[in-house]
């Protein structure tokens, strides 16, 4: 284990964490403010990626594609909130799960109908391709550094939005007591649409950025969605700060676990067994962390209404 390798792996963990944060922040706001479980959040991630791939493909500009992806996901979010979610606020969580699960199926099959089953091509823009040397001897892909930068900027923006603006005040008030702020004359319906569209736009941003690294394909959002739920449960539902800390914790644990556990087992087991045992345990690690945190702090690390 050399220092450059450790730095690289730590950055890998932070980068995964930051993308998870973009997903989790929307999820946690929607759950915290609106009391809504939205399984279709992964579909908004996919919409962002598909729009970005299509627009980048036809204009040649990744920046335009990224912008289009965010806007398309936000619009899709607003449309979903207006057409489906509104009818679900008063309902049981089970009804919300059912309806949003149906949305996953509809959006996935609709995308397959429009784009076909094969993954779309989307690549890292030329300006951000390649790797840079970091102090300490590590070499790291520029695009991943850019993702970390964008993610941290978004986190900062969200903190300021929630803590310093009128909209943020309404969101915080909505979390605590939605009847009261409605009685005070705040248009709660449009507030909910804005919050939902904001969360959707962030999911679209994550999908578009990650799509260039991975593959843009139907169903790409669901594995990320599961991790995002783990993040908001660890971080405390409704809390942006919790989502950030939880996301980085999950990202770093997952990355370091799946690399270093096999090496650790290699000290006591033969190599081929060590890799299989280590890999299996590594993929379980974040759930173990979640279980431990829930056992000590059932409400999560930073519960919103504490």
């Amino acid at each position: 284990m050399t220092l450059p390798l450790f730095i690289e792996q730590l950055l890998n963990g932070v980068q995964l964490g930051v993308t998870l944060f973009l997903m989790a922040s929307g999820l946690t706001l929607v759950f915290g403010v609106m009391g809504l479980i939205n399984l279709a959040h992964g579909s908004l991630y996919m919409i962002g990626a598909f729009t970005c791939a299509t627009v980048t493909g036809s204009t040649g500009s990744f920046a335009l594609g990224l912008g289009a992806g965010v806007i398309a996901a936000a619009l899709a979010g607003a449309l979903i909130e207006w057409s489906v979610m509104r009818r679900l606020y008063a309902r049981d969580h089970l009804d919300q799960v059912l309806a949003t699960f149906a949305l996953i199926l509809i959006i996935s099959e609709g995308t397959r109908y429009l784009f076909g089953g094969a993954p779309l091509w989307l690549d890292v823009p030329d300006a951000l391709s390649g790797a840079v040397a970091l102090p300490g001897g590590a070499v790291y892909p520029l695009y991943r550094l850019a993702i970390i930068g964008v993610g941290l900027l978004v986190a900062l923006g969200l903190f300021l939005l929630i803590a310093r603006t009128r909209l943020g005040m309404q969101i915080r008030a909505g979390e605590s007591d939605r009847e009261m702020i409605a009685a005070l004359g705040v248009n709660i319906a449009s507030l909910y649409t804005i919050v939902f569209a904001l969360g959707a736009g962030l999911a679209g941003l994550a999908g578009a950025m990650v799509g260039a690294l991975q593959s843009v394909r139907v169903g790409m959002g669901e594995p990320v969605l599961i991790l995002a739920f783990v993040v908001i449960v660890i971080g405390g539902i409704g809390s942006i700060r919790g989502a950030l800390v939880g996301a980085v914790l999950v990202g770093v644990t997952d990355t370091l676990g799946r690399i270093f556990l096999p090496e650790l087992f290699g000290l006591v087991l033969p190599p081929s067994e060590a890799t299989t045992v280590g890999a299996s345990l590594g993929s379980m690690l974040i759930y173990l962390v979640m279980a431990v945190i829930l056992a000590i702090r059932p409400q999560g690390l930073f519960p919103a209404n504490a």
Binding site: N12, P223, R258, I259
Partner: peptide, 17 residues
């Protein structure tokens, strides 16, 4: 040699290794 998770799509950690 590394065994990755089936369906995994981020290989940053493996590539660094």
């Amino acid at each position: 040699e590394i065994y990755t998770k089936l369906g995994q799509e981020d290989y940053a950690a493996e590539i660094s290794q």
